[in-house]
Design a protein around this nucleic acid. Structure first.
Lengths: 216, 216
DNA sequence: ATATGCTCGACTGTTGACAAAATATACAAG
DNA sequence: CTTGTATATTTTGTCAACAGTCGAGCATAT
């Protein structure tokens, strides 16, 4: 793999993990020096990240980590809900024993993680959703879902702070798997949609959790 | 706007319009000479196109116009169907008079175009779908839908050859608008899903229309 | 004291060149 | 005539440098 690809993944990880704050400025020279390469691979990496929407570039004014306005963020979560609902519907229709086992295993992982700490539940939650994506047996849809999931990861991490969400999240996971295994397309879609959607108090919490990225 | 952005749009248009054939090789030097710029802006444009999936780059082996395998193409159409269904559901829930008028106008455009030729119906069909996207009142979802629509445009153009599809397509458009206007979320979603999905004979036609992109 | 215009600095967008890698070609051997 | 190897060519990935542009800071005038 070439430098640009490695750097893209590296920078993307730093953004997704929150290491690079929302709205942070991405200076090309600085990054070049930090990674010990010239500006060219940095630019190529930033270009790709900009194309996926993870960062924003204003002409002649450099790149910053995307810090969407709340209304756009809400739209992104709504889109995520619809895409996951589609994954659930297809999974319910096409479930094969192999995916059924994977779903149960991922569910068991969530059950175990809830007893330890929020961070490990976060990790198991990620696994669970990727298993649902794959169970749709639609490689393109699964990749779209995964891409958007990663892009929303920083905000999901904020939501995680509401500790009382964890048991409810697990219960929703149980319902999702039950619907998929039962072959209930509409039920699986609705369960996933309501699981992912951000509304009511959760939206307030989400917005409140954002550091004001106004001037930056 | 800088060179790279202009070039990205230009090359994208050539791919979408079919001017650049599926599987065609994109030689950087050749493109650079053709557009009268150096290789760097070309590379940046190609990088962005690769990030959106319109072209594919193999490391050290250059870029080609994406020519997905039939099974992946089918998956893309299925994803498109699900995304459009989501747009329809949201549009049915949120329809405002302004969007209702736009829908009726787009529908009227389709009715008029079917009396002239297939090419103008193709154009009006594009307008109709973008109006549906906007009516979802979800800017992010609408952009995702538009992006995927553009990416599938070369294949839709192939489908267009089946002339007898046009009246059926128009009838489906009528049903879609009726469901949205009636506020029937499930009905609008289902109407759009079945309108976009490729199955049965249409899939056979689609695959048959592809030039064998195997060796290329 | 505030506002406006100018200059300087910093950063981006672009260029040409160089080096590494992969494929194609040519030659030789079986 | 076929096959394997070595060379050559083409093309990518990376680098250093240049030029153009935007913004910040300072000086000046009202």
């Amino acid at each position: 793999m070439n430098h640009a690809q490695r750097l893209r993944q590296r920078i993307e990880d730093e953004i997704v993990s929150g290491e690079l704050a929302l709205g942070a400025r991405l200076d090309e020279n600085q990054l070049a020096e930090r990674f010990g390469v010239s500006r060219t691979p940095i630019r190529e990496a930033l270009l790709q990240l900009a194309a996926t929407g993870l960062i924003q570039t204003k002409p002649r004014r450099g790149a910053i980590v995307s810090a969407p306005e709340p209304h756009l963020l809400l739209a992104m979560f709504e889109t995520m809900a619809e895409i996951e609902a589609a994954c659930g519907r297809l999974a319910a229709r096409r479930l094969v024993p192999e995916d059924a086992e994977a779903l149960q295993a991922a569910l068991a992982g969530c059950r175990a993680a809830i007893l330890t700490d929020a961070e490990s539940y976060y990790a198991e939650n990620y696994v669970f959703h990727t298993v649902v994506y794959r169970a749709s047996r639609n490689a393109f849809l699964a990749e779209q879902a995964l891409s958007l999931h990663r892009r929303l990861a920083p905000y999901r991490r904020l939501q995680l702070r509401a500790r009382q969400r964890l048991p409810q999240s697990l219960a929703e996971h149980e319902a999702i798997v039950a619907a998929i295994v039962a072959g209930d397309e509409a039920g699986a879609a609705e369960a996933l949609r309501s699981h992912v959607i951000v509304q009511g108090d959760r939206f307030t919490d989400l917005v409140a959790g954002l550091r004001a990225p106004s001037a930056a």
